[in-house]
Simulated scan of single mutants.
Amino acid sequence: MTEKLHFTVSGRGPHLVLAHSLASNSDLWSAQLPLLEKHFTVLRFDIRGHGRSPAPAGAYTMEELADDAIALLEGQGIKKVTWVAVSLGAMIGQVVALKKPDLIEKLVLADTTSGYPPPAQAAWNERIEHVEHDGMNGVVNGTLSRWFTEGFQTKHPDKFGRIREMILATNPAGFIGCGNAIRDFDVKSETHRISCPTLVMVGEHDQATPPDMARGIAASIPGAKFVLIPDAAHQAAVEQPSFFNAELAKFLNLVEAP
């Protein structure tokens, strides 16, 4: 990709990357920024096809998405980062850690997978078809039902509405391109090579990437820590920010409480 990704930098200290999920953008991390900006120079970027980054037509691969991120970091002269990510961003993080092990100092993988079984791959084909025919309206309701527990909309209408608008604002070409990358993603046989300290977190009610997937990732990475987030589904950092931030602070050895 010749065009550069959109990104923002804030805070001070060693570098930390925040990578978002499919059908969102770098604003997804608003509940984590107050904590992390006290301790890190935080770089948030919009993944290819999302937010203000370019959305070329066609299928993307996870390798390409990882190369985008590596090029961004190298372009900023960044040689070492802590990578904190959810879902698609955490898939990209796994590939970056495998391709450039010296680049990733610590890795936080939230609500993600190392590869889907065939039935889930078929579901991705259906979602891609929905977006091809109906745009983001074709997947917004199903996405929200997977992302949040029942009742979240009633308890937190502002948060829910913000995420709904984020989904609808996603470029359909970006969703389709990244959807192909997610469908075809599989590093299950390689994650044992990830050598940096790793935290794997997942919402206990995550339907999109169920807890057993996260347990499998944690079991495959030497020394990885596994945390189950109560009363949360796929967007656990949004749904249970206090719990998520507390676990993040412990793993990153932050002195201040979140």
Rank of each mutant, 00 (worst) to 15 (best):
T2V: 07
E3I: 07
F7S: 04
F7Y: 12
S10A: 13
R12G: 12
P14E: 08
A23K: 04
S26F: 11
D27K: 13
D27Y: 08
L28Y: 09
W29H: 04
L36V: 04
K38F: 03
T41C: 07
L43P: 01
F45Q: 00
F45G: 02
D46A: 06
G51M: 06
A57Y: 00
Y60S: 05
L65Y: 06
A66K: 04
D67E: 04
A71M: 12
L72V: 05
L73T: 08
E74W: 14
K79V: 12
V81A: 05
V81F: 06
T82I: 15
T82L: 12
W83K: 08
V84Q: 03
L88G: 03
G89Q: 03
G93W: 09
V96D: 06
A97N: 11
K100F: 03
L103R: 10
E105A: 15
L109C: 08
A110Y: 05
A110C: 15
S114D: 15
S114Q: 12
A122M: 00
A123F: 14
N125F: 13
E129I: 02
H130D: 03
M136C: 05
V139Y: 03
V139S: 02
V140M: 10
S145Y: 10
S145I: 11
G151W: 10
Q153M: 15
Q153G: 11
H156S: 13
P157T: 00
D158I: 12
R162F: 02
I163E: 10
I163R: 14
N171C: 10
P172E: 06
C178Y: 01
G179Y: 01
G179D: 04
D186C: 02
K188D: 01
E190K: 15
E190Q: 15
T191C: 13
T191S: 11
R193V: 07
R193L: 13
I194L: 08
T198Q: 09
T198L: 08
M201D: 04
V202T: 00
V202A: 05
E204P: 04
E204C: 10
D206W: 05
A214Y: 08
I217G: 00
S220V: 07
G223K: 15
K225T: 12
F226A: 00
V227L: 07
L228K: 09
D231N: 14
A232V: 07
A232P: 05
A233E: 14
H234R: 09
H234D: 09
H234G: 05
A237C: 14
A237H: 11
V238G: 00
E239P: 02
E239K: 09
F244I: 06
F244Y: 15
A246Y: 08
E247M: 07
L248K: 04
A249M: 00
F251G: 07
N253K: 11
L254I: 14
E256P: 02
A257T: 14
P258F: 00
